[in-house]
Design a protein around this nucleic acid. Structure first.
Lengths: 144, 144
DNA sequence: TATGACTTTGTAATGAGTACAAAGTTAGAA
DNA sequence: TTCTAACTTTGTACTCATTACAAAGTCATA
């Protein structure tokens, strides 16, 4: 699951402290889920995380994946991304940024926000900027 | 369903042309669905539209509501709003604007975007800016 | 090691949305 | 007007993400 060996410790440690900061016991399953989200920058779905970890943790349950993700989201350790209707994706990068989903290849890109301002009377705790369209790759090389 | 009688014709006409522009036959059901979305600025769900129209159109089917909404969305006559995970909402106001969902009262506000810029290499055809937090009403008068 | 709290698991249920085919409706030709 | 083909609506059955819940397992600490 973790591709670059020299980064694996670092990510595991990050995952460990994320779980602790969230006030949860750092069980192997929870660390694995947190590490998956931190490691992969593909904005995985709960099912992708479950399937990706199933080989290494054969007893892993979907409920554990959902529980862990929800705990991490509610303590703001990770972000839930709703760039695609009907399915939740998760992102370990929590700094404010936009998401761009290519309608051709369905890949999701992170995009930094240059400038954005909102009225002050709203007490804004969460921002999701979700874009759709055609990515640079697909503009050059469109898939059928 | 339409509260202000003097506006009802106007909205029905707008709904009619929306359906036509979309290349569909303007059936009573389709006009009703389009008019509902245009009339109510509450970002209704498919189910809210279905329930709201059921009394006036007892034979109305959920499938018809979904079909009509999808046609209107794909021809950009209305917008699908994913400000809440797991449920699609619909918005007749199609100018670029943000949505703010109050986590206390769950109301969805329209917010005009003052300024926003994105990298040019992405061909952006859809923008969703979804905010959550606490609305001015709930700041003053929090509900338990 | 015993106890109680926390965690994981698996199954069943929920609920939004979709697929599909049958029934109904409409426009336009004959 | 009547017929026909295309379009539209309806209802049922299904899919699939997510949730509820209770039983089984694990761990920290006394």
């Amino acid at each position: 699951m973790i591709q670059q060996a020299h980064k694996s410790n670092e990510i595991a440690a990050q995952a460990f402290s994320l779980i602790k900061e969230c006030g949860l016991r750092p069980s192997p399953q929870r660390i694995a889920v947190a590490a998956y989200v931190l490691c992969y920058r593909t904005h995985p779905t709960a099912d992708e995380i479950f399937t990706g970890l199933k080989e290494q943790y054969p007893s892993l349950s979907r409920t554990t994946v959902y529980n862990t993700l929800h705990s991490l989201v509610s303590s703001k350790g990770i972000m839930e991304v709703n760039v695609e209707p009907g399915i939740a994706r998760f992102d370990g990068y929590t700094e404010p940024h936009a998401h761009f989903r290519c309608q051709m290849c369905n890949m999701i890109y992170d995009i930094d926000l240059i400038e954005m301002s909102f009225p002050e009377e709203f007490d804004i705790s969460g921002v999701q900027v979700n874009l759709t369209g055609c990515c640079p790759q697909c503009r050059v090389n469109p898939k059928p």
